[in-house]
């Protein structure tokens, strides 16, 4: 299969007053068309920053040092701003983490759904609202007509997440970045939302970069998975292979640290401190090599 998104040697740092901290260290990652690709790592590993780089919503202090992000044969990082905006929402979309804050509190659901339809599909307002209603039906919102006229605070968290999913899929994008899209929901809602995303993904053939720190979620929804730590991809392979024969020591530790319900009794073991400090040393080593090569 051909890769819809191919990231090569992506490095990025954040520049605060004077100091600069490297967050991504030579990330390489390929997402095939039609696959759900998990990105797993602990908090602060750089998962969200990687997603934000693809979506062009990095904080102002972020500086991309090197690397390419090829989407459909063109390097996103070299595109003119208007061209890049043309892809956002239509070819590349986001399912955000927190359904409570990701919708605009003062705009009706219908308006917020219509945005991409008007902008990219050039529908007029009425057609856009009709289409928005269909989209709400597709994500199984009970009274779609009424929901169109409602404000976010009138919907539950699960309903809002469905609206956000409808927005993401509205223009049938080829890639969706889902950043911890189910973390803020309770377990039963989380299961429904995962099933919904998977269903829409299969029927539309969209690829998804599924960011999470939960290997249980990866097992449910992902085809392949990449393990990230300190801004480095440690390994990347089919979910089945990673779960049965993890290569990297950190992946093995992560698996042991994840409670699994399918194996009768499972011992929960925290990730060894020594392993973490080894990984951090390796990251420092990477930074030193970069510095040396720049100085040379």
């Amino acid at each position: 299969m051909s890769a819809i998104l191919k990231i090569s040697q992506l490095s990025l740092c954040l520049r605060y007053a004077g100091i600069s901290e490297r967050i991504l260290r030579g990330i390489s990652l390929a997402i095939d068309s039609g696959e759900v690709h998990g990105l797993v790592g602990e908090s602060g590993a750089g998962k969200s920053i990687l997603g934000q780089t693809i979506l062009d919503i990095l904080p102002r202090i972020a500086v991309i040092e090197s690397g390419t992000i090829d989407f459909d044969g063109q390097n996103l990082l070299r595109l003119a701003p208007t061209q890049r905006r043309g892809l956002l929402g239509s070819e590349i979309a986001l399912i955000p983490q927190d359904p409570m804050t990701a919708l605009n509190p003062v705009r009706r659901i219908g308006q917020q759904l219509a945005d991409t339809l008007v902008l990219h599909l050039k529908l007029n307002r009425k057609d856009a609202l009709d289409r928005a209603c269909e989209l709400l039906e597709e994500v199984r919102i009970k009274h779609p007509r009424r929901a169109l006229r409602q404000y976010p605070h009138e919907l539950s968290g699960g309903m809002r997440q469905r609206v956000l999913i409808a927005i993401a899929f509205s223009c049938k994008p080829r890639l969706i970045v889902a950043d911890e899209s189910t973390t803020a929901l309770d377990v039963s809602v989380q299961r429904q939302i995962l099933r919904l995303i998977r269903e829409l993904q299969v029927s539309s053939g969209t690829s998804i970069l599924f960011i999470t720190h939960d290997l249980g979620v990866v097992a449910k929804i992902c085809d392949r998975v990449s393990i990230i730590h300190s801004g480095r991809i440690l390994e990347s392979d089919a979910v089945k292979r990673i779960f049965s024969m993890p290569e990297h020591e950190y992946t093995r530790a992560l698996l042991k640290a994840t409670p699994r319900y399918d194996h009768g009794k499972h011992q929960f073991r925290p990730i060894p401190k020594a392993l973490i400090s080894t990984l951090q040393l390796e990251a420092k080593e990477y930074d030193r090599r970069i510095r040396d090569s720049v100085d040379a």
Partner: peptide, 28 residues
């Protein structure tokens, strides 16, 4: 805010995000 970031990922320009999304919230 998160909703402004989401608006960017919809393909809005910065000016559109200010006028369509942020302004009304900021006016309150």
């Amino acid at each position: 805010q998160d909703y402004a970031a989401l608006a960017h990922t919809k393909g809005f320009s910065r000016l559109q995000v200010i006028l369509k999304e942020a302004l009304r919230n900021a006016l309150i």
